[in-house]
Amino acid sequence: MDEVQIAKQGCMRCGNNDNALDDHSVLNASCNLESREEKLNLKVIGVGLCRTGTYSLRGVLNMLGFPCYHYSEMRKNNQINLWLDILSGKSEDWKSAFSGYMATVDFPSITVYRKLMELCPEAKIILTVRDTQTWYESVKDTVYRAYNTPGDQSPSQLVLSRLKMWEGLFGGRFEDREYAMSVYEAHVESVKNYVPAHKLLVFNLKEGWLPLCNFLGVPLPPADTPFPHLNKTAQFIGCRFKEA
């Protein structure tokens, strides 16, 4: 099956097929999930850095019945200023940020994953990983390129990504390849050391459904369901830099 067919299968917990891969709407009346409650109720916290398969994991979690927050959701929900306030310490309005979601992956939530673990102590933690060198090339050719492309992001987005990603996490040295790769590897080790082993899944997308479904305690999808690999480098470049 292709990705369109996968999407048509819908959410494996509620059966709703409204944009199952790309946008599991939390307003669907037929989806009887705890995530619709107005409280912070994260069941899954993704802590892998961007370009480790976080967008694919988002799609998979949506399919498995865990409506998932991601950088793209922040943009869609017009929450950039909310996150600027949260990350600067001006606000702790976590409920507004994650209202209706049962999972979160990618930036900006990865920068506060320890706080989210405190707020949601029963949440399971997924650390997506990939080869360090291919990770660096992917980031350089996609999100870092977007950051440096005039007009690609709003002023607020630029401030947020600069403060917490490029100057924060990478100390303004992302273009130093060896340093950036060392930051990536240090992040992986930091997560492994911080998160209790029984709550952590270190996950490479190449491993597919079995370890992920076992970890989450959900049934495997039908045998002919391919594991989605979304937002690959070529796709990102084709969508964001069509005139480049």
Rank of each mutant, 00 (worst) to 15 (best):
L216Q: 07
R240C: 14
L169Q: 10
A223N: 13
M1R: 12
C68F: 08
V105A: 09
S99K: 10
F241Q: 06
R130K: 12
G208I: 00
K206G: 08
G172E: 12
T132V: 14
Y55D: 06
V105M: 06
D93H: 04
I125Q: 04
R177K: 15
A223E: 15
I45P: 00
L216S: 05
E38T: 09
L87C: 09
L230P: 06
K115T: 07
N77R: 15
V159S: 09
D2I: 01
E3F: 13
N204R: 06
Y194R: 03
A146Y: 01
G48T: 01
W135T: 00
S99H: 11
K90N: 14
S190W: 05
M102D: 13
L200Q: 09
L87V: 08
N193L: 10
L57H: 02
F241T: 01
F215R: 03
M181D: 10
M102P: 00
V143S: 09
K232N: 13
F66H: 06
F215T: 00
L201M: 05
V4Y: 12
V112Q: 08
M74H: 04
A123C: 11
T111A: 11
A197P: 09
M1N: 13
K90Q: 14
G65D: 07
T54K: 03
R145S: 11
L210I: 11
S88A: 12
L87F: 11
G100L: 02
V139S: 05
N62Y: 03
C11R: 06
N148F: 14
M165W: 10
E175P: 05
L21T: 00
C31Q: 01
L230M: 15
